[in-house]
Design a protein around this nucleic acid. Sequence first.
DNA 1: AAAGTTTTCTACGAATTGTAGAAGAAGCAG
DNA 2: CTGCTTCTTCTACAATTCGTAGAAAACTTT
Lengths: 128, 128
Amino acid sequence: MASLGELERAVMDLLWASQEAATANTLRDLLAQDSEAEGGSAGHQGKDLAVTTVLTVLSRLEKKGLVERERGTRPHRYQAVSSREDHTAELMHEVLGSAPDREAVLARFIGSVSESEAATLRKLLGGH
Amino acid sequence: MASLGELERAVMDLLWASQEAATANTLRDLLAQDSEAEGGSAGHQGKDLAVTTVLTVLSRLEKKGLVERERGTRPHRYQAVSSREDHTAELMHEVLGSAPDREAVLARFIGSVSESEAATLRKLLGGH
DNA sequence: AAAGTTTTCTACGAATTGTAGAAGAAGCAG
DNA sequence: CTGCTTCTTCTACAATTCGTAGAAAACTTT
């Protein structure tokens, strides 16, 4: 139960973008805007989703542990459980974790990182 | 079109384990063994798959670009396109790639790597 | 209590995956 | 070459996931 569908991803992007908790309605509106602004002629069309659709997706994301909801307030408010960066880093660990030879994987991985990123990594890893 | 199902993964594991190309029949046998040897009482049961099942899976893996087949020999022979390590590293890049703030993700990622792996990384990243 | 808003339940269609039979193609025994 | 055996391709079906949303239930507000 790892990867997200297209809409699920779109919703997460919104939640990650706005640090704040949002209601399903707000999200629906944001999604409408996004798809409206999305690209020239043949982009994939602008949807105007039903709120129930957004709610379903939010429930699924909650079940997957990516989203948390405040049930106290009346229009429930949803927010991402962890930041996009944390989540992505976690994902990377998941991918790596399933490998028997982690170090070999890391070697390959490092091999194809840009120089500037390599520099960042050196800094992060600190002097020996 | 990213992740693999359970059986697909099992097949890839076999192909990755044995550097050599294998036939569908061989793989079917190996799968049978594996599930046989797999865990005490309530593990998920030992299947004895039909060869067509294995062939279907192999075709799908081929379509996904993970497997290559020699069509010349009569029992076609299948092999992984890239090593497990390469594939995993690629996956990590895919995960990372979709992030707007790559460096932040890398920071988190590095933050939760074991010390020995950190050492390896330092070595790989080389001086200055 | 009526009307409006929000949430939950239920459902359906497309795509993916595990699973395999039926039928077609290719090679081997006579 | 003709039939038997083996291998591959085609087609199919059930379960799960995901996009999508109506119907109904629950809660607010007036």
